[in-house]
Design a protein around this nucleic acid. Sequence first.
DNA 1: GTGAAAGCGCTAACAG
DNA 2: CTGTTAGCGCTTTCAC
Lengths: 319, 319
Amino acid sequence: MNDASKVNPETRERVQKAMRKLGYQPSRVAQRLRATKGRSKLLGLIIPDIQNQFYSNIVRGVEDVAYGKDYAVILCNSDENPNKERFYLDVLQSESVDGVILPPIHQYSKVVEGLVEAGVPIVCVDRKLVREAVDTVVINNQKGGFIAVDHLIELGHKRIAILSSSSQFSSFEERQKGYEEALKASGINVDPDLIREGDPRSSENARELTKELLALESPPTAIFATNNLMTLGALEAINEAGLKIPRDISVVGFDDMPWAKAITPPLTVIKQPGYEMGRRSAELMFQRVADPGREPVQITMEPSIIVRQSTGKVKINKK
Amino acid sequence: MNDASKVNPETRERVQKAMRKLGYQPSRVAQRLRATKGRSKLLGLIIPDIQNQFYSNIVRGVEDVAYGKDYAVILCNSDENPNKERFYLDVLQSESVDGVILPPIHQYSKVVEGLVEAGVPIVCVDRKLVREAVDTVVINNQKGGFIAVDHLIELGHKRIAILSSSSQFSSFEERQKGYEEALKASGINVDPDLIREGDPRSSENARELTKELLALESPPTAIFATNNLMTLGALEAINEAGLKIPRDISVVGFDDMPWAKAITPPLTVIKQPGYEMGRRSAELMFQRVADPGREPVQITMEPSIIVRQSTGKVKINKK
DNA sequence: GTGAAAGCGCTAACAG
DNA sequence: CTGTTAGCGCTTTCAC
């Protein structure tokens, strides 16, 4: 029934007919219980929050690849809560999934590192693990930050603010590094007043931060928001202040959200290939399941800037 | 170990300590294999597309309830493809999930109806099944359509277009019914030219449709877009045509997307409580698992209109 | 109150 | 090439 190779063709046909007739479906549960290693047809996927479009892109990429291989995926939302992450990791192990794909909450994670060492196939996506060599799919975040800010500098901006994360996620740290790098490369001082760190899961928080920025004695002429939710918050605050983009202020967002080109003016963004990142992660996963001994690889994908009308030449603010 | 009731407390304590010491974790797979009915700790969730924010809201609602009950959920994307739906339904059965939550692709679905009759706990969310009595969580779509259009009528609009679905989803049919009802209630003729049906999964398609609408000899002064993607497409087409909202045209969208209030001008929408719908669906699921004999219930939630600045008083078009 | 045994549905290993 | 068997890890039942 399972291995078509060494069976009498007519017997095979007879069996298949019987299967169809009886509507027989093998129990994946029993299969999994018996199989033990690497053929459980189940994948675990832990993400911070499915309501974040960037992560739903990743999820879709993973699922599409899984579907093609007859795998199902268990989806878990961690809310950036390490306890939830650990809980789900336990559940997934207990479900004997073939592997787990996740953006690790901490760069140094005892739990995840432990699993890697225990030989559980793990793929990190979007964020890295520092100590352990694991299959990883990320984008070049520093470059993303750099090109965003460099674009603004080219337009003449000198007071460029950044909305970043107060938590230590590798992705945000790198984007911020890119921001500073771009400024320095153009001989612009990094003004700590223009660096605002908050909760990247809260557009509300970004809105507050942006308000503060706009209320500054010498407010920024441009804002770089380092993820989709923060971009939203920045936009809200700017609208509320009655400012016009790009006349009064320029904005570069992170992530090419579907609505970015539908708004007025269309939003300039750094595009992350979320769907593709999901696909690649799942592919790495399957490679590792097939060959647990393989050396870990790290795939770095390229972000790109999509210039639209939310950025414009700077104007001198005359008071 | 499992049932705390009838065990010597000190033995229990001893066992628990041993469990912790050895890091023992029961295998949910083996549990599921043995358990057979209604305690598998796994739920199936089939949605059209996780990249659609409305569905990711539902997913989040389901998962949060599941998490609270120590359940995991297998997520499947059907892409509105009945074959994929059937495929996943088979997979989920084979995984012996305790039940499946889904917006059925067809109102008359042999497969889903079959499962219901076979006693598999099913909860329909967002869309209904016509023939079979099943637990269902929907919103009052007709009312949603009605209040959207009625709002536009009150602003003086008479030529109101609708972007609806060419496929026969119960939700869209009802929204369209509400549209017609509102027009009739105000003595406005339903102009077939203003009713455009397309693929609700494609903002691109909605963009085309809107372009056609705007190119009409007597174009609409307002557009009602019946889901989030179609709203996006409409907005794009309007921007491209150089029209200003609400000066030149008014728009009401469906779904309160996070970006709706961050854009200029903020978008008036009919809000669906997606997250809550997910929660309620999961709750119904658990109720049914606990009591398979219970009468099916249908929960109808209320949509609400959130009036923002994308709708304005109609102006007379003078050529 | 506690311990032993049967069996869920499958696959791998082995004997015919 | 085909048929039989043991056992994956658990829960339930039944005997102690």
